[in-house]
Every structure is written in C-alpha cells, then in structure tokens.
Design a protein around this nucleic acid. Structure first.
Lengths: 370, 370
DNA sequence: ATGAAAGCGCTAACAA
DNA sequence: TTGTTAGCGCTTTCAT
C-alpha cells in the first residue's frame, strides 16, 4: 500500500470499484441487504476499503445524520473509585450499542459543569448521562434547549428521569452495621454515632442523613443535630471536622459514618495521627466502596453502589424516551470489613469480636487459607 | 425565547442580524479583528447568538477544518488510581488548550485497543495519547496511516515519542526502602525480597525488574530468578502467586515488591487470610500510589508517578511535532507509609521502628496531632 | 468592512 | 440492483 497524501474517502473507493458513492456508502455501513446490492459488489467494495485503510469520517456522517454516535457522561471526578466504576459501566453499555463514550469530569465546579454540557451538545452527542451534578436544573435547561435526551444518575434532577442508589436503604444498613459494632460506653457524647461528610442540600446526602437519623433514633431513642457534620465531600474539611469532633469528645466516637470516599481520605488524614489502640472502641462505616479502604487496619463497613445496574437503568430510561419525572432507586450492597481481623484466633488485644461473613468484597473470592 | 423546532445555525443569525453567514461565522469565532468587522456588528451578532442559545456545530466545523478539536487518550482501565489520575491530568491539559478530552479504556485487550484507536481516528481527533498499550506497534501503524500525531505514555512505543516514568529509578528507590525495612532472618529463602506482578515483556515491568535486581544484588550479593514472579497485572493471579509463594516459603517473605495496584489488590486478597502478626516480619512496597493503600495496617512504601509531568510532557512532544524516537523519563516519588504506626510511642509489639518522614502522601498535609 | 460561492465527506430521496 | 442529486452547518478564498 502506497502512502496517500490524505485519508481515502468513499469517492476513492467508488472510483476504484466502479460503483457510485452511495452504493459504497450503503455497502460499507451494512445497508447492503436493504439496498439490495449484489453480494459481489459489497465484497469488492469492502476489499478495496480494507486495502486503502479506509475508515468512515464520523464528522461527515454525523453532520449528515444530525447525530454523532457519541454519548456523553459527566462525573465530578475521575480519581474516585465510585465514579471510575461508573465510568467502566458506562463504557461497557455504550460499546454494547456501538456508541463512543465521552466521559468528562467537572471537579464539582458548577461553571465547569455547564461548560462541559455545552461542549458535549456542540459535538452533537446523542444523549448525556449526568452523574453527581451540583446544579441539575441548569443542566436540564441547556439540554432541553438543545433537545438532548438526558438522565441523571447518582443525584436526581428535578422532575427529570433519574436513577439513583437507594440512599435511605444504604444508610440504614450502614448505620445499623455501625450500631451493631459499636461498643457500649458510659460517656454520653462519645457513645453516639456521628455522620461526617456530604452536602446537606444534595439529595443523596439528605436521604442518607434521614436513614442515619431513623436508624439511630430507632436504636438509641434519639438523634441530635450535632451528630450530623455535613462538611462537604473534599478531604481537607473532612479531616478538620473529624479532628474537631475528636477534640470535642476527647477521643474518637463509638461510631462513625463517613459519607463519601473523598471525605474518608480526609478522615484517614487525621487517623494517621492517632495511636493504634484508639480504634479499638470505634465502629466505622463509609458510604461507597474502595477495595483498599476495605482492607484498613480497623474494620470498615462499606456501602457498594451497584454501578452496572445504575448505568443500565439509565440507558433504559434514555431508550424508553421518558421525559417525565421518574426516580428509580437501586438498592446498594453492604460490604462487611475484610481486614486481617477476620482471623480471630490471633487477633491482638483491642480487636473486636465480629467475624464478618457475607459476600467477598472483590470479584476474586477468598478461598483456601494456609 | 420561543421553543425552536431545531437548533439555530449561523444562517438564522445572519438573517436576524442582516449580516452574511461568513461574517457571522467570523464574528462568532473570534476572528472579528482579523476580518475587520465593525465592533457594533460583532456585538449585535453575539447578542443574537446568545438570545437564540446558539452553539457552534462542532461536527460541521470539524468537517470543514479537517480536524475536530477532540483529543483522545486510551488507558487500560478507569478504576485504578494511577490511570484515573492520568485522566485528571489529561483533562486539565486538554482544557487549557480549548480541546475536548475523550478518554477511553481498553481493559488491556489488544483487540479493543485497536478498535478504540480506529474509533478515535474516525472522529478525527487532533491527536492521541496512548497509555499502557499492550501493542504499541499496531497502534503506531494505524495512527501513521491516518497521519495522527500520537505519543506513548507509561509504556513506550517502539522508536516513537514516548514519555514514561523512570521505572528503573522508582524500582531502585522502592527496593531500597524495602531492603532497609526488611528484618534480618536466618531463613535463606524467606530472607530475600520478592517481586510480584507485571508482564515481563512490558518495558515498564522489565525496567523495574532491572532496578529491583540491581538493588538486591548490590545489597545482598545476588538476586535469583525465583525472586521475580511476574504474574501479570490482574488481581486474581497475583493472589494465587503470593499464596503459592507463602506456601513455598512457609510464611511471608521478609520483603515484597508488588508491581502494580491491581496486583496489590490481589495480594491483599491473600493477606486477609493471614493472622495480624504475620506482617511484623515483612517489608512491603508497591509500585504506584493509592491513598487508601497508603493507610493499610502494615507499612507500605509506594511509588507515586508524576502524572501531571507525564501528561504535560506528552502534550509538549505532540506540539513540538516530533516523530522520531524519543524517550523522556520522569522521576517518580517514593511515598513512605502513612500508617498509624507513625506514632511510635504507642506502637504495638511487632511494629517496626522507622518513623517515616518525607512528603505527605496526600495533598492535605498532616498538621497538628492531639 | 462585508458578501457570494464552493466544498469538507457523507447519506437519503428519488430516479432509473 | 444501482446512480444522481441535494444538502447537513460551517469556514475559506476571492470579490467587492
């Protein structure tokens, strides 16, 4: 094959095959049968195309068809195991449909969110999934103006098709696990569980707080406002918040519900300062799952959202063409700790007694021990 | 603003403003000055555009300009802290240039790599960054045929512009940290460090093995082949490999160099089966960094690659127009453990004596302790 | 300082 | 079974 000076087009193939451009186009996009092109012609055209290293110019096709076969998703950040898992699911689902996934993060910046959605629209993406948006309504306005189908994931849009985790259920399960694991204390302040992290105006956080409150109230009779410390998602403030809390209580609380992985990173930033036995009297849970976080020194209960189902459902909503208010809730899983505390026989003083059972935390089931 | 039946184009704006489409085009793409359009005209056009909610159709622009303003990057997987950090850097760099980032993962499947590159090319991406490719030469052939500038990141391409971490240096540093932390043992087999994970034919793994061997040989006089267990990147095989190793040695080795985060996930899958004091006599290091992995029960030394510099440099190479063989190596950082073992005063029996210093492992510096 | 016209590569109607 | 034609929305000469 000689080096061409520019990319081959269907006109090159038309010339070489003696067929017309439209025949080439049809043959190359699998429309041979419906256009009833002769088998031989199709094969000849394909052969030449392969020879030439031809590939369809998707911009031209997209311009003509008024769509792009691109599908967009916006997420707050890439380097977060929850969102990167959503990305994985989104890619799989897009590919299964022959679409090209475009995943862009917004760093939780509302202005960046808007700009990103505008960009995706100007590339004529076929539709967009919006995960963890901070201003859903602004996004919906934009998409509506451009007639872009869109579905909210993780955080619901107002009166829009949305698919979210059953945050209430997840929070209840996590809170109950923490309550079960909490040691009894006489100290009235340290004896209560606390929730740290999240943005109260976010639907997800609000629902989790409700679940937390409900569980705590059911178990302990009450849940006070100072048990809720919604200091945002970022690690820094979460670290400060936990530090302040520990200062206030004179030590770690008996129970801690951390509301996101990023907040948990911050919490660990404080924990690293504490002596090892500080954790013996504390039960810890984290909403969202990260395999490494599941292996920390102290047992951590985690909530794993069902990424595949969230995304599948979102694609389903898009394809159903729904535009009315719809809120689908997907139940998450509670993942018990997978720490070395599992083997109780050799557990050091200070380790607590639960032997977690339940499903393994990663795909690789733990079999056989020495 | 009334609801339009389809997206407004420059022709709508032309009609409304009385200007011609070409004037509108120029005014809207900042070419007012060079085309010397009257200030007033430009402003009027912009006003109407805003009114209409106009946004450029990038497919049409791209078709005309024979480029897309899209830039592609392929990575092996999204849900891996190393690659997701590369994604973050890539996005930042793309945005700084007014380009739209398209990041697609290939799940380490060579066929998927090829398909993905073909897809990116058919969307006329301006250039592509290739991270962690398993078949760089095939990718280069494709890109060359399409005259697509491309740079390899993380794993070099053969005779192509590439920017990689200084794997040798990183491995030497990590190995030395492990060697320093290794307890002395009489057992000749357990007393040696082992390297687990990676693909020997990968350049990165090969260089790391070289570094490992060099350090081990310098310190211990020799390094045998059975100390290198390159069982791939996936968690499952890594878990099996470590399990087998422990079986062979009758316990954990004194030193363990894990060659990737995914392999480390597998290693932990085995560790979870072991009694807590099993780790007292082992020094552990992991190539690549994950904040949660940095907080595990036992101290873990980690190598953090400089994502921002890798990506910046890659963009630089693209922009310089280089096509010849170039290999830029970026030195990585050694991140000391940030475990609760830091506070030595209260460290339990079995904890080792180093108080790690050096740079904090996350962006949030650890200040003030209770 | 601005307009007219051509054309990027493709597909969809309509002819034949 | 295939070819002809028009046009998607934009940018870019070239004219004025």
């Amino acid at each position: 094959m000689t080096t061409r000076r520019s990319k081959p087009t269907i006109y090159d193939i038309a010339r070489l095959s003696g067929a017309s451009p439209s025949t080439v186009s049809a043959a190359l996009s699998g429309k041979g049968p419906s256009r009833r092109i002769a088998q031989g012609t199709v094969e000849e055209i394909q052969r030449i195309a392969t020879d030439l290293g031809y590939s369809t110019n998707m911009q031209a096709r997209g311009l003509r068809q008024a769509r792009s076969h691109l599908v967009g998703m916006i997420i707050p950040e890439h380097d977060n195991r929850y969102f990167s898992t959503l990305s994985r699911s989104f890619e799989a689902e897009a590919r299964a449909r022959g679409l090209c996934p475009v995943i862009v993060s917004t760093l939780r910046d509302p202005a960046e969110e808007i700009r990103t959605v505008e960009t995706l629209i100007s590339y004529q993406v076929d539709f967009v999934l919006v995960a963890g948006a901070s201003d859903p309504e602004a996004i919906s306005r934009l998409c509506d103006a451009a007639r872009k189908p869109h579905v909210f994931v993780d955080l619901p849009g107002w009166g829009r098709p949305s698919v979210v985790t059953d945050n209430h259920l997840g929070a209840v399960r996590l809170t109950e696990a923490v309550l079960d694991a909490m040691p009894a204390t006489d100290d009235p302040l340290r004896g209560r569980p606390y929730l740290v992290g999240g943005v109260p105006k976010d639907y997800a956080t609000a629902r989790r707080i409700e679940g937390f409150r409900a569980s705590v109230t059911a178990r302990l009779g009450r849940c006070d406002d100072d048990q809720i410390i919604a200091c945002g998602y970022a690690p820094g403030p979460a670290r400060e918040a936990v530090m302040a809390l520990c200062g206030r209580l004179g030590g770690l609380p008996a129970g801690l519900f951390v509301n996101s992985l990023t907040a948990f990173e911050g919490v660990l930033g404080h924990f690293v300062q504490l002596p090892p036995d500080a954790f013996a009297q504390t039960a810890i849970g984290c909403y969202d799952y990260d395999p490494f976080a599941a292996y920390l020194q102290f047992p951590v209960y985690m909530v794993r959202q069902n990424s595949d189902r969230l995304i599948e459902t979102a694609f389903g909503l898009i394809e159903s063409g729904r535009r009315e208010a719809t809120l689908v809730e997907i139940p998450p899983d509670l993942v018990p700790p997978r720490t070395i505390f599992r083997n109780m026989a050799q557990a050091p003083k200070g380790a607590r007694g639960e032997v977690p059972t339940g499903t393994p935390a990663t795909g690789t089931p733990a079999t056989g021990a020495p």
